[in-house]
Design a protein around this nucleic acid. Structure first.
Lengths: 349, 349
DNA sequence: TTGTAGGCGTTATCAT
DNA sequence: ATGATAACGCCTACAA
């Protein structure tokens, strides 16, 4: 019977719904927030009123009153190579959308003299309830310390040192690197070079360990001479390859800890007139877009980054909503992608 | 004299500031919002109280009361190639940060059966005041119509059909393509292939026009046989190159409308045993990261996308704040980047 | 199970 | 130029 002057254009408030349903605003609030203690019949009445009026809770009022912003922050390294972030973004956004949260971005350009100040500014200004923190930022001492101090929930993606009280999502990139190296060994390669990733990145150590494990399993001696430090970027890969290829006994295959460095290796090989994979096998890691566009297309490893990010953001939001969440028991699985940058060792010797 | 119990932890409200400064909250509000009609001395008092108390206006309360969310949306195509978006993101974020706005993301995967619904949902749910709209989304009829209907201010980046009542930011990519083609002509090339970009993208027509202009200027006949339709992606570039190279009289140089397609051309050339640039010169457009990592590194054009996006977002926000803004009079300048995928035509004939 | 009252921090109205 | 007071729409007590 009651029928105020509900404005036709999606401007209905909780009062309009209450009137339409013939209940109090509190009851509407209960229904909207999925609280218990509402009789099914009442709930239905309210629900249909909500539908009719196209009622959407006012986010500002909700935040002002309830102290919850429904905002999650993504604090990330604003690197040149952006494909990793693209996936992180898509995964995080999916989770946020599904749960009615919005995602705010906080790019950080490294090196940065005062990361802590930037993050603090972000957290206080943007009023985010929690933070998704993809590697390698979580492993920066300054960032980690601040976040701990701020007592803001964090979901770390591929952290080096997972904090047990927080959410952590990882993948088994060590095992994948091991598979990759074993694949090369099975192809007859014995002298296999390795280019490490950025030392501040948790994955670097894991991938290196995977490489050593492969050698060990096949009874091959590890030689530090075949290992070079890289930094996940094209130039460091090129430099490392140059040193490796200058060796008196250069490797017949090189494992780069990511695709960008592998691209550098390919580039260096080209400059020396070497043909890949005939003269040198090369593998990367990440299956970034560049991997399939180079010549030859790169044998590499694909990580389920979208899924990892989605999981991280989803668990984070659930935690913010008071649910007792746990980090995944098992790391996510990586997938080896064989392309054309690898070939059996020509047994000419 | 007055000194309530200001909580030490950045929780000061407008009342605390008013008390500290000995004025009413309305005056504080005036100062915070840069309104006139405040005596300088009063303003100073308030300002110093704000500093002392580290007062930050509560965004939720502001929005609830003032109807302004200080949120801007970025509606973009969620494409594989993400470097373009990376720059758009950085530029937009810069402008937002500088003006106290936050940026919300609305990725759209194409093709999408109901773009309009998605955008409408975003605008109403995310309560953004305005939208930054990078190409090619602005040129999709469905999106354009909806945005017009929603009456929400839009800042378009590189639109095909600029709407005079909105903000539009572009660059002279037609002229740049012309320079690129002229460069090839000066290198002795006469049969120059062209791979068009996605027809829905405004830049495609501009770049094609630039190519034709270059031919015209140098008195070269235009041949439709040397032109192929591409879609800005690697595969379409590869296919187009294949067709072009199958011609009885194949071109000695190919202009691809972007780097991804140029990468496809390079790939195809490799598969045919052609050496670039000895047997074929290739140029791209965008100077994406891949351009400098390929072999040979690509001659291409760099667009100031970060600047364009920053300008678009800045003008949009200024407009939202009631300022009388105008789109830039001049398009932004592109820069030709000469690398190693081009060489003078070997005059063997 | 349901409803009433008060407050969240700001901006807007209308005085003064 | 400045101030008192009423919205803004919702949520959290607390009552019934």
């Amino acid at each position: 019977m009651p029928s105020g002057s509900e404005s036709p254009l999606g401007k209905a408030t909780i009062f309009d719904v209450a009137e339409q349903a013939g209940v109090s605003i509190k009851t509407v609030s209960r229904v909207v927030n999925n609280e218990s203690n509402v009789r099914d019949a009442t709930r239905e009445k309210v629900l249909s009123a909500i539908r009719e009026l196209r009622y959407k809770p006012n986010a500002a009022a909700r935040e002002l009153s309830g102290k919850r912003s429904r905002l999650v922050g993504l604090v990330y390294e604003n690197a040149q190579e952006f494909n990793y972030l693209k996936d992180v973004l898509n995964g995080s956004l999916d989770a946020c959308e599904a749960r009615g949260y919005a995602l705010l971005l906080c790019p950080i350009t490294l090196p940065n003299p005062d990361i802590a100040a930037r993050i603090r500014e972000f957290v206080t200004q943007a009023r985010v309830e929690g933070i998704v923190l993809p590697a390698p930022l979580g492993d920066l001492a300054a960032a980690a310390a601040l976040l701990r101090q701020l007592r803001i929930p964090v979901a770390a993606i591929a952290p080096k040192d997972p904090r047990p009280e927080e959410i952590n999502v990882s993948c088994n990139d060590g095992a994948a690197t091991c598979s990759l190296a074993e694949y090369l060994i099975e192809q007859g390669h014995r002298a296999i070079g390795f280019i490490k990733g950025h030392p501040g990145h948790g994955a670097s150590a894991a991938r290196f360990a995977g490489y050593r494990r492969a050698l060990q399993r096949h009874g091959l001696a590890f030689s530090a001479a075949l290992v070079r430090q890289g930094y996940f970027d094209f130039d460091s890969g090129k430099t490392a390859a140059s040193e490796l290829l200058d060796l008196a006994k250069p490797p017949s295959a090189i494992v780069a800890s990511n695709d960008d460095m592998a691209a550098g290796v390919l580039f260096e090989a080209r400059e020396r007139g070497l043909t890949v994979p005939r003269d040198l096998s090369v593998v990367g890691f990440d299956d970034t877009q560049i991997a399939s566009r180079m010549w030859p297309p790169l044998t590499t490893v694909r990580q389920p980054i979208v899924q990892m990010a989605e999981t991280a953001a989803r668990l984070l939001i659930d935690k913010l909503n008071g649910e007792a969440v746990q980090s995944p028991d098992e790391p996510f699985e990586c997938e080896v992608v064989i392309r054309k940058s690898t070939a059996p060792l020509a047994s000419i010797t």
